[in-house]
């Protein structure tokens, strides 16, 4: 942990927490994007490209938010489709 009031010396938030959360909660595809972005933030920051690192960090945040929205949505849509197929099969088998 690093505490400083001088914003120039603190790297931008790379949002790796969301990547880890995605991994342990089964949204691996979004987790992978988050990991790559977090990795890019670190690399650019280490190279001294602070503008690039901030840009990568804001991309990482965008992906984390989209992952949080699309992940559960995709799972729900997936189960709705499965349910429709099962309901259709049960309906068809009664004839």
């Amino acid at each position: 942990m690093e505490s400083s009031h001088n914003a120039a010396s603190v790297p931008p938030d790379n949002n790796l927490v969301w990547a880890i959360l995605c991994t342990v909660l089964c949204c691996i595809p979004f987790g992978i994007v988050s990991i790559l972005k977090a990795n890019k933030v670190n690399t650019l920051w280490a190279q001294g490209d602070h503008v690039g690192a901030r840009k990568a960090a804001s991309d990482a945040k965008k992906w984390a938010i989209w992952g949080a929205i699309i992940g559960p949505l995709a799972i729900i849509i997936f189960y709705v489709i499965i349910f429709v197929i099962y309901a259709g099969a049960i309906f068809a088998s009664t004839y």
Binding site: M1, S3, A7, P11, N14, V17, A19, T23, A38, N42
Partner: peptide, 28 residues
């Protein structure tokens, strides 16, 4: 918790471990 703290008190604390690419690659 640190994220929440940053949000509440407008600080910029960071988890040092997350800024090591070695940690990222080993974890995943």
């Amino acid at each position: 918790g640190l994220k929440l703290w940053n949000y509440l008190f407008e600080t910029v604390h960071r988890v040092r471990l997350f800024y090591s690419n070695l940690f990222i690659f080993s974890y995943f």
